[in-house]
Each structure stands twice: as C-alpha cells, then as structure tokens.
C-alpha cells in the first residue's frame, strides 16, 4: 500500500471510530444525567401510573444497551427518532430550524474572518505602532467577554437605547446584525493574532524582498504576494474554529430569541427530550469531525510532508 493510501485509510477509519464514539458519548451523557423525562414532562404532580405510561411509550424502561441499539439502528436508516416533548419527528424539527442557524453562524463566521484578517494585516504592517496595540487590546477584550453578556449589552445599546435594530427574534433583515456580531467578534480575535504572526513571517521572506526590489507597488506586494501565502493557515484555522462558532451560537440564539438549532437544544435539554438532544449533539459532532478532516486535507494539500508523517 502506498503511503498516501495508507494515510487516508487511517484517516477514514479514525473518523468513523470518532463518529461511533460520539454517538455513544452523546447517548450516555444524557441517559446517565439524573432527571426523569417522564416526570419533567408530566410535572412533579404526576401519578406513578401516568409516569409509567409515558416511560412505556418512549421505551425509557428498557436497559440502556437496548435503547442505544434502537437509536443506532434507526439512525442508520436516517431516522433521528421522535421528540418526546414535541411529539414530532426529530428530522422535521431540525430541518425546520437549521436555516436560521446557518444564516447566523455563516454571517458570524464571515464577520470574524474578514475582521480578523484585516486586523491581523494592519497589525503586521504597522508593527509595534498604536494600531498594533489596539488590535491586541480589542482581541483580548472580545475574548474576555462572555458571549451572552456581549449579546445583552448589544441589545441594550443598539436595540433599546439607540433603536437601530429590532431587539430580538427574526423580524427584519437587520435582525441578524447583533447576534452575528456577538458571535463573530468573539471569534475574530482567534483569526487576528495568527494572521498577524503569519503576515510578519511572510513579509520577512526572500521573495517578498525580491518583489519589493522589483519595484512593485507596496499594496500589490502585500495583497498579491504576502497575503496569499499568509492566508493558507487561516483557512485551516477557520475549519478549527467552526465548532466554536456553532457552540457559541447556542447561547446567542437564546439571548436573541433566534429560532434555530441552539434554542431547540437548550429547550430539549431542559425537557430531557433525549432524542432531540442526541440528534443535535450528533450533528454538531459530525460538523466538528468533518471540519477536522477538512483541515487535514488542506494541510496535506499545502504541505505534502504531512501525508507521510501523519
């Protein structure tokens, strides 16, 4: 087997094992957490007979391995199960809510990348100037503020005091601005710092000096020669930050009444709606696994040495 083939077989087997591990963990975390979905559903005042009926209906009395097997087998058929709380197919629930989440996370991602890259470049070009320090300070600032607090702060300033945008919910085109900013600014810092470092390194390379010596205009040197090379690690970074953005969107969705996967997850955890929580955890994990795979692919494409060493 060639090294290349071996590398990818390994990679794929590992991804599959990770995926199975993820389903198991998602399942166990929930079922081992105290709290009986039947009791939460019927309230503290429910009679034992009614509780039993609900447990019966959702197979909550079966041993864990049987419940797990039942879940995995229907999963294999693409069926995520039926929600206990909503009494609806989980596939439908997720399908209905994935749109808003995609809009939010994509916008947040774009904000973070664009701002991060611009900040990073500026900081590198004006190294040790006030601008450089400013980008450092703002990066620390955004990273330090918890996202729900940032969200509420934004709502208070731009929604309540200035009335520039609607407070919450998805009521107009401008609704996405605040949640996406709350999400994006926090991640921006993760791009700004590596971008700065990368740019500095590239700017010191021989070929940049050569380009400058050729008499090319400075901005062309920066955009055509330096930026192009400095951006490559950022693309990998992007793949690695994706899970954080998805995770962050859970909190942001709750603060901004954003009817997406995140608020569905929070509701479902509260209601111990096992099938929904499992399905969402699984989806998020798959996104993470895929993002990592994607990052690997880019690495190997950029740097062929990794293929044999990995």
């Amino acid at each position: 087997m060639s090294n290349r083939k071996k590398y990818w077989t390994n990679k794929i087997i590992r991804t599959i094992i990770t995926a199975i591990g993820v389903t198991l963990i998602a399942f166990l975390i929930l079922h081992l957490t105290p709290g009986d979905p039947a009791r939460i559903m019927l309230g503290s005042y429910a009679s034992e007979e009614n509780l039993e009926a609900v447990r019966e209906k959702y197979n909550l009395n079966e041993p864990l391995y049987i419940q797990y097997w039942a879940w995995i087998s229907s999963l294999a058929k693409g069926d995520l199960g039926t929600s206990i709380r909503y009494n609806r197919s989980v596939n439908t629930l997720i399908k209905d809510r994935i749109g808003p989440t995609l809009v939010l996370t994509l916008t947040g991602l774009i904000i973070s990348v664009v701002l991060g890259v611009v900040m990073g470049i500026l900081a590198a070009l004006k190294r040790n100037s006030w601008l450089d320090y400013l980008t450092t300070v703002q990066a620390i600032f955004w990273i330090s503020i918890p996202s729900f607090w940032l969200g509420i702060l934004f709502l208070y300033i731009f929604g309540l005091q200035l009335r520039w945008v609607p407070i919450a919910g998805m009521v107009s085109y401008t609704s996405v601005i605040l949640p996406a900013l709350s999400l994006g600014l926090r991640q921006e810092a993760w791009f700004a710092r590596p971008m700065r470092a990368e740019m500095l390194e590239v700017l010191n390379q021989e070929y940049i000096r050569a380009a400058k010596a050729k008499g090319l205009k400075y901005y062309i040197v920066v955009t055509k020669h330096a930026l192009r090379n400095a951006l490559i690690p950022i693309i990998t970074m992007l793949a690695l930050r994706l899970p954080w953005i998805i995770g962050g969107s859970v909190v942001i969705e709750v603060v901004f009444s954003w009817g997406g996967i995140g608020s569905l997850l929070v509701n479902s955890v509260k209601a111990r709606d096992y099938p929904v929580v499992q399905a969402i955890l699984l989806l998020i994990s798959i996104a993470v696994v895929l993002a990592n795979l994607f990052a690997d692919i880019i690495y190997t494409w950029v740097d062929p040495r990794i293929r044999t060493e990995g």
Partner: peptide, 13 residues
C-alpha cells in the same frame, strides 16, 4: 405569540 427564552431580551422588546 413569539418565543423569548431570555427574559432580559423580552423585557427590552
């Protein structure tokens, strides 16, 4: 009916 999981947001709205 609109759904506001976070009371703070609902109060501002």
């Amino acid at each position: 009916f609109r759904f506001y999981p976070e009371t703070t947001s609902a109060v501002m709205a």
